[in-house]
Design a protein around this nucleic acid. Structure first.
Length: 680
DNA sequence: GTTAGGG
DNA sequence: CCCTAAC
């Protein structure tokens, strides 16, 4: 009490704070943020590289690559083995838990600087039964579809359970893991000979296709999965054989540990726009979704550059979220209210891809899928083809020839750069891959639900009648409670058919020309100005047809909000630009005076009260604004007069600022100290 | 919803 | 001013 009295009247006559509080200033932000970012960057870059690849492929592989990549003969090129020998490193990740965690390792360096990377993705054959996709594709698969030039060979003992008999079941131990390996190789520059292999572990609901070829020629002597490379000239990936294991590896030549820097810097330029609901969604993702996901317990990555340093953290105590974050920088996970839009804007241009969550965050009456009516629902779209099946022993041997990522619809301003387009694609792919996948086994057209059934029991054997074995890639049920809507996830939103792109070459130009209507009047509510988070809805545009060209995106990942919602949005995207920052409103001297006075009275740390006290009628001044202003005032008062800019604040006011600031900080400090003493 | 701080 | 972590 005594002390209180003293405070009350002492010290420059400043009143005592009504609500004593401990200094929050103690809350210093850790530096972990940076670290995290860095770690994320790595994976991101890698993904970016992938995107670059994809794009590249889409641009040039319309015809040749497909044929080339699919050719079975290349299977024997032995890229894997070579690599295996060449580099002793192997990437391995164990899938565990119910999920289908797949490892993901990326080598960074490629694409960023090398625009003309030669993609090594091979396009996977479409699933035969994927009629929906067939009919609804807006964009030729060769365009954006993920292409992988590998065949996946599998050899699984008949007595393996159905669950195990899935492509994803790679790393022994986890029956339910789903895994898809991919490999990307960059060629052309010896120093940049990067092998990018990544296993896809996404829970996305995007159906993916897997072609399964059961061929004797692909049989391996042991149980393993291999992803041979079609490029034998430069071995790129290796999948050391192990029992039911697949090891993926990522390799980067040591000579170029910094190749990724270029991209990194660009990556950092990304600044997603926060939109309505993003917080909620993020929270959902973070807590509800991600935390439920299986933990990647043993993921090993090999990488020669420092990038892996961060990634390697996953090896230790890899939490799912950590892993995911490795894949997608947190900063990029921002959502738009109605459609999640993700944009990568390395070049400062604007482009975006947005996914259409099944359910609008904002709760629109109709889901994007409905709005897009034509959006087809695709059930597990993976269909396997078994060309032949023979058995020499009790093992069933087959290979998965390829898989593809669902189509993505991208809408990018024509002034967007190719680089940004790449980034966009990359983002989209990232979004899909990070979701996680669940591998399903379909026998005779029927999905095998019982994971405990053996192949033998399911008739999956060497019989020739086994012509109906197939696999499905679907969103993993990361969230148990999540309704099994997998089947009803739209894969693609085929809107105006005239927007279809039939050729790769056309794609770029077409896509670039496909501009959405940037006009707020068309796409946005009138509240744009007041509604900070309002963002034009692509869906709406599509729905009402007023913006023919505005089917910005449609990636349609058939991923649930939880699974895929993490689609960041670029602040520079036109749509989001509508949600521009408030107009700058410099404080007038009178305002400053009022502020100073209020602070002298109330002290710092009670900005809400300050606002109510002195700026109650100034709607445009939030307490945060006042707080910020005070911050700048203090700074201004601290620096020399000639360094000050803007409207000059009377020195006397600045003096008061300093005085009050000094007092309140001192006061607060004292108070805090006192409290501590009292506690003792 | 506020507050404190970094950007 | 914005964005966010921490309350």
């Amino acid at each position: 009490m005594v002390l209180k009295k003293r405070l009350e009247y002492g010290f420059s006559g400043y009143p005592v704070p009504v609500i004593p509080r401990g200094p929050r200033s103690a809350r210093k932000r850790g530096s972990h943020k940076k670290t995290l970012e860095d770690s994320q960057i790595c994976a991101f870059e890698l993904l970016a590289a992938v995107a670059g690849k994809l794009l590249q492929e889409s641009e040039s592989s319309t015809s040749s690559n497909v044929a080339e990549g699919l050719h079975p003969s290349s299977i024997h090129n032995g890229g894997i083995k070579q690599e295996q020998v060449e580099k002793g490193e192997a990437l391995k990740s164990e899938c565990r838990d119910q999920g289908s965690w797949v490892e993901s390792v990326f080598s960074s360096e490629l694409a960023p600087r090398k625009r003309n990377l030669d993609s090594s993705f091979a396009e996977f054959p479409r699933a035969v039964s994927d009629t929906v996709l067939e009919g609804t594709s807006v964009i030729p698969r060769s365009k954006i579809s993920t292409k992988v030039r590998h065949d996946l060979k599998l050899e699984i003992p008949e007595n393996k359970t159905a669950a195990e008999n899935s492509p994803g079941k790679v790393e022994g131990g986890s029956p339910n893991c789903g895994e898809i390996g991919r490999q990307i190789k960059a060629e052309g520059n010896p120093n940049h000979n990067v092998d990018l292999t990544m296993a896809v572990n996404s829970y996305s609901k995007d159906p993916m296709e897997i072609h399964v070829n059961i061929t004797d020629s692909l049989i391996n002597s042991d149980t393993s999965v291999q992803l041979p490379s079609y490029r034998d000239s430069v071995p790129n990936a290796s999948f050391p054989r192990q029992k039911n294991n697949v090891k993926l590896r990522s390799r980067v030549d040591d000579e170029n540990p910094v190749g990724r820097n270029v991209y990194r810097s660009k990556t950092r330029a990304i600044r997603p726009q926060t939109c309505i609901g993003h917080r909620r969604v993020r929270k959902l993702l973070a807590s509800k979704n991600w935390k439920v996901t299986p933990t990647l317990e043993d993921c090993e990555f090999s990488d020669s550059d420092g990038c892996m340093k961060n990634v390697n953290r996953c090896r230790k105590a890899p939490s799912t979220s950590e892993v995911i974050q490795c894949l997608v920088p947190l900063k990029k996970r921002k959502l738009c209210n109605r459609n999640s839009t993700l944009a990568h804007d390395p070049e400062g241009s604007s482009e975006s891809i947005s996914n259409s969550p099944e359910k609008g965050v904002k709760g629109e009456k109709t889901s994007p899928a409905k709005n897009l009516g034509r959006a087809k629902v695709v059930s597990s779209s993976v269909v396997g083809h078994q060309t032949s099946l023979k058995s020499r022993d009790s093992h069933v041997k087959f290979s998965i020839k390829s898989f593809k990522v669902p189509e993505l619809y991208i809408d990018i301003p024509e002034n967007a750069t190719v680089g940004s387009l790449k980034g966009t694609v990359m983002e989209a792919v990232t979004a899909i891959l990070q979701g996680g996948l669940h591998v399903g086994v379909v026998v005779h057209g029927k999905k095998v639900k019982d994971d405990n059934k053996t192949l033998l029991q399911m008739g999956i054997s060497h019989n020739d009648d086994m012509g109906t074995l197939s696999f499905t890639l679907e969103a993993g049920s990361r969230i148990a409670s999540q309704p099994p809507n997998r089947k009803e996830v739209p894969i693609l939103l085929p809107c105006e058919t005239h927007h279809q792109f039939s050729r790769s070459a056309a794609m770029e130009s077409e896509v670039l020309n496909a501009s959405f209507d940037p006009s707020p009047a068309t796409n946005v509510d009138n509240h744009v100005e007041t509604n900070h988070e309002l963002v034009p809805s692509t869906h709406e545009a599509i729905k009402d047809g007023t913006a023919p060209d505005s089917r910005a995106l449609v990636a349609v990942p058939a991923v649930s909000v939880e699974a895929l919602a993490v689609v960041p949005m670029n602040q520079k995207t036109r749509r989001c630009e509508l949600v521009q920052r408030r107009t700058r409103r410099p404080f007038s001297v009178s305002e400053v005076e009022a502020l100073v006075e209020a602070v002298e009275k109330l002290g710092t740390g009670r900005w809400r009260d300050v606002k109510l006290s002195a700026f109650e009628n100034a709607d445009h001044r939030t307490y945060v604004d006042l707080k910020d202003k005070w911050k700048t005032l203090v700074h201004t008062a601290t620096i020399s007069p000639h360094q000050r800019r803007g409207e000059t604040v009377p020195q006397d006011l600045l003096d008061r600022v300093l005085s009050a600031h000094g007092y309140w900080s001192h006061h607060q400090h004292k108070l805090h100290g006192k409290h501590l003493i009292n506690l003792l």
